[in-house]
Simulated scan of single mutants.
Amino acid sequence: MFHPLRVSEVDRLTDDAVAVTFDVPPELRETFRHTPGQHIAVRRAAPAGANGNNGGGAEDGEDGIRGEVRRTYSICAPAGPEPALRVGIRLVEGGEFSTYALKELAVGDTVEVMEPTGRFVLEPRPGHFAAVVGGSGITPVLSIAATLLAREPDARFCLVRSDRSVASTMFLEEVADLKDRWPDRFQLVTAVSREEQQAGLGSGRLDRERLTRLLPALLPVEDIDGWFLCGPLGLVAGAERALRGLGVRRDRIHQEIFHVDEALAGAPAAAAAQDLADATLTATLDGRSGSWPVRDGESLLETVLRARADAPYACKGGVCGTCRAFLVSGEVRMDRNFALEPEETAAGYVLACQSHPATGEVELDFDR
């Protein structure tokens, strides 16, 4: 469900990024209380003549059914008893909402915001944790690290971050503050890909080979209690392969993709598959069920949206995971999946925006 929230602050972070803070009224404090690492979806009416992009995840998408632009942004503020709803927004070329946020959004404006969701999270607990992030991938990890260090005195955190340049680095001051407040428990390693820096790593991308050499020199890699990888697909995929090669168990690696480069993603896995004719979808959402025929070529999410405008979604690119649903019966094929962990797909969860019927009858449950 979306709620209209007033913008209380718009802070310029870099030339192409801002942090936006929303006022949360007392009656919605429980609704917007978040777990560190979660994100929110925002929406606004699509400008006249806008051409939405329903793929790629990081691009803003327009829902052709209702003429809306939706986008997900991770919460960067620490979690606490009084929910602070602050997100980081980086300008995406052609992105409808990010362009609006950087060029038009102002204090006092109202934005429709969905309650926090997402499973890229860490509940504070004792242990040694680490993250490898790229660009705006710092946003959820900033909330995770700040909350963990403030709440759990027996926890440590190592942040390895990569950016194009120092000038393009988001949340420089906030990360520096973590280092100042917890110098013995917070370790920071920085790398820039397009310029030399006086401190930190030499210039260059943090690819699989470089991380394979770097991480064991920084940490007892196999003993880390949780790894959090966030950023573009290339960085996250390379970091996962490096960690797996270093002996890290799969269940200790958590991922969130912020941008999918089409050249890296490749064609949809089942693009050549023929959609099943005359399939019927039954779906349960907010305790109400309905059945509808699936039109040729449409995803199961699009089928539900024809009858239920409240169906959850944001990116439509298989990245944010907002449309996650449990497959009760039948079979589906997913074009892409950059949001669900292997454990989730094994348990029966699918992304409705990427799913197409592979049997004549399919049933989804969005409430599980």
Rank of each mutant, 00 (worst) to 15 (best):
E302Y: 02
W227V: 03
E240V: 12
L102S: 03
S168Q: 11
V107I: 11
G226F: 06
T117Y: 12
L285C: 11
P357T: 05
A176L: 13
G67L: 03
A309G: 10
V10A: 00
D365I: 06
P36A: 06
S98D: 04
I144W: 01
E104L: 07
D225V: 03
T345N: 08
T139G: 08
V350D: 02
M114V: 04
P220E: 14
C76I: 11
E173F: 09
L246C: 07
C323F: 00
Y100V: 01
A271P: 09
V362K: 05
S193G: 08
V319T: 07
R12W: 03
S291D: 09
V111C: 00
L281V: 04
I89T: 00
V192T: 15
P124D: 08
L235D: 03
E331W: 04
E59A: 10
G204E: 04
D275N: 14
F366E: 01
P78F: 05
Y73D: 00
V132L: 06
F157L: 06
L5I: 00
R44E: 02
R241I: 07
T190L: 15
A358E: 13
G202L: 13
S299G: 04
R6N: 09
L188F: 12
P342F: 10
L28F: 09
A79G: 02
E298P: 04
F338P: 04
A325K: 02
F366K: 00
E343Y: 14
D367I: 05
G360S: 10
D261F: 12
T280P: 08
L300A: 05
L178C: 06
P47Y: 07
E115P: 04
F366D: 00
L13F: 03
K179D: 13
L188G: 05
G88R: 04
G52E: 02
D251S: 14
S291Y: 08
E341P: 04
P220K: 11
V141M: 06
E262F: 10
G297E: 06
H254R: 11
L105K: 00
L105E: 00
A239E: 08
D335T: 05
E256T: 06
G317S: 04
D223I: 08
E361W: 09
A309R: 13
W182G: 08
V236M: 05
V304P: 02
D225W: 02
P81G: 12
G135I: 04
L219C: 08
F157I: 09
A347E: 14
E240R: 15
P312M: 01
D335H: 11
L229K: 03
C76R: 08
R252M: 10
A106E: 13
A77S: 12
A358I: 10
D335F: 03
R308Q: 13
L351N: 01
D11H: 11
G94A: 07
F171V: 01
D16E: 14
E222R: 15
A199S: 14
A270E: 15
T21Y: 00
T99C: 10
G238C: 05
A145H: 05
T169R: 13
L13N: 03
